[in-house]
């Protein structure tokens, strides 16, 4: 509660990342694709001397990424010692959480339920609070790119 949140649109929905896990928001530069990696991995990119794995949140949840525009900004997060750049539709704002994450009856739909810790009330309305670890694990049946 009263935690800062980074608000973003993913697949047309409002989502929130805990501001503590987001190290920075960057403009995506050149991305080196990684052949034969799961679809939701867009590639790797460099942030100064660091290599970031670029993950498209839309495909990581199981949506088709091309259905939504992106503003080419990405949230940089760290998980298990590796850094990731999360591609979203757009980064919106910083907001303050006004409730604890809570579940809603009926869930959020299969794609969302896996990655969401729950609904959280913010100054600009309710948002889904996302679990980074779940998000970067990719969809359950991650399909390998066709040769």
């Amino acid at each position: 509660m009263n935690d800062l949140l980074v608000m973003a649109q993913i697949a047309g929905r409002r989502c929130a990342f805990p501001a503590g896990v987001v190290k920075s928001v960057i403009e995506l530069g050149a991305i080196t694709p990684v052949p034969r990696s799961p679809d939701f991995i867009t590639g790797i990119t460099a942030l100064r001397s660091q290599a970031l794995t670029v993950i498209d949140c839309r495909s990581a949840m199981g949506f088709a990424p091309h259905d939504w525009e992106t503003d080419h900004r990405a949230a940089v997060v760290a998980a298990a010692g590796h850094s990731y750049a999360l591609v979203v539709d757009r980064i919106e704002d910083i907001a303050t959480g006004q409730s604890s994450p809570e579940s809603v009856p009926g869930g959020f739909g299969p794609q969302w339920s896996r990655v969401a810790s729950g609904m959280i009330e913010t100054g600009i309305g309710p948002a889904l609070l996302l679990d980074i670890e779940q998000l970067i694990a990719g969809p359950d049946t991650s399909v390998t790119k066709a040769a």
Binding site: V34, P35, S37, A51, H82, S142
Partner: peptide, 14 residues
Amino acid sequence: VKPLAPAVMKSGLY
């Protein structure tokens, strides 16, 4: 050499 994320390493190519 910098390490790669586990999801990328899984391909076994890098």
